[in-house]
Amino acid sequence: MRVLEDGSHTGHRLAIAESVLAPHTQGPPQHRHARHDEGFYVLSGTVRFTVGDEDHDATTGTLVMVPPGTPHTFANPTDQPAVMLSTFTPDLYVQYFRDLQEVLAGGRPLTPQANIEAMSRFATRPATDLA
């Protein structure tokens, strides 16, 4: 993931990141954000979004918006990489990705529990009723 705008130029109203999902990449545990909207624009490939108990395959050029409280996750189930832009309004969630990077840089595995612990610091909770 590459943070393109961390909110410092938008009064913390908007952050933007680019993500490359390797083939057969699992996403984060399904979760809900309490305080921010999240948007995904698929630049290339196919990304499978799970919203509640429904799967939706988003191909190149698809925009997916996730309002607060909506249970969701994403993955790349295909044999090809996928690239997407993500928006966060406000920018609250950008630090979550930096925290995950620190986990990996520290030599610790990025387990579902480590992911959930990082999420919890940014008004985000697992959608345990859908696990």
Rank of each mutant, 00 (worst) to 15 (best):
L14P: 06
D91K: 03
Q80N: 05
P109H: 05
P29G: 04
R98P: 00
N115S: 15
R35E: 11
P90W: 01
V94A: 12
V47M: 06
E54Y: 03
G107I: 05
Q26R: 14
S19R: 09
I16Y: 07
R13H: 13
Y41G: 02
L92W: 09
V42T: 07
R13K: 15
G106I: 07
T70S: 04
L63D: 11
A58H: 08
L92P: 00
R121C: 03
Q26M: 12
V51R: 13
R121Y: 06
F74Q: 05
G7N: 09
T89D: 04
A22T: 03
L110V: 06
A114S: 09
Y93G: 01
V42L: 10
Y41T: 05
L110S: 04
L4V: 11
Q26L: 14
P23M: 03
V3R: 10
P90M: 06
S44R: 15
A75W: 07
P90V: 02
P71N: 05
A131K: 06
G39I: 02
L110A: 11
L4C: 04
G107R: 10
Y93V: 02
T70K: 13
G52T: 08
G45S: 07
T25V: 11
A105F: 07
T111D: 10
Y41Q: 08
D55C: 07
F74H: 11
M1S: 13
Q30P: 13
F74G: 00
M1T: 09
P112H: 08
Q113G: 05
T128H: 13
T10E: 06
T62H: 09
G27M: 10
P90F: 02
N76M: 09
G61H: 11
P23R: 05
F49S: 02
N115W: 03
D6N: 15
G106A: 12
Q113C: 01
E117P: 01
A58I: 08
T124H: 10
Q26W: 11
P90I: 01
A34K: 12
R108F: 01
L130T: 06
V47F: 04
T25Q: 15
Q80S: 11
L100C: 10
D129T: 09
P112E: 04
L43C: 06
R13S: 13
L43E: 14
S44L: 04
F88M: 15
A17N: 10
E38Q: 15
G69R: 09
G27H: 10
Y41P: 00
F88W: 06
M84E: 12
P28N: 06
D79V: 04
A22R: 13
D53Y: 00
G107E: 09
T78N: 09
S44M: 08
F88N: 06
D129I: 03
L4N: 03
L43Q: 12
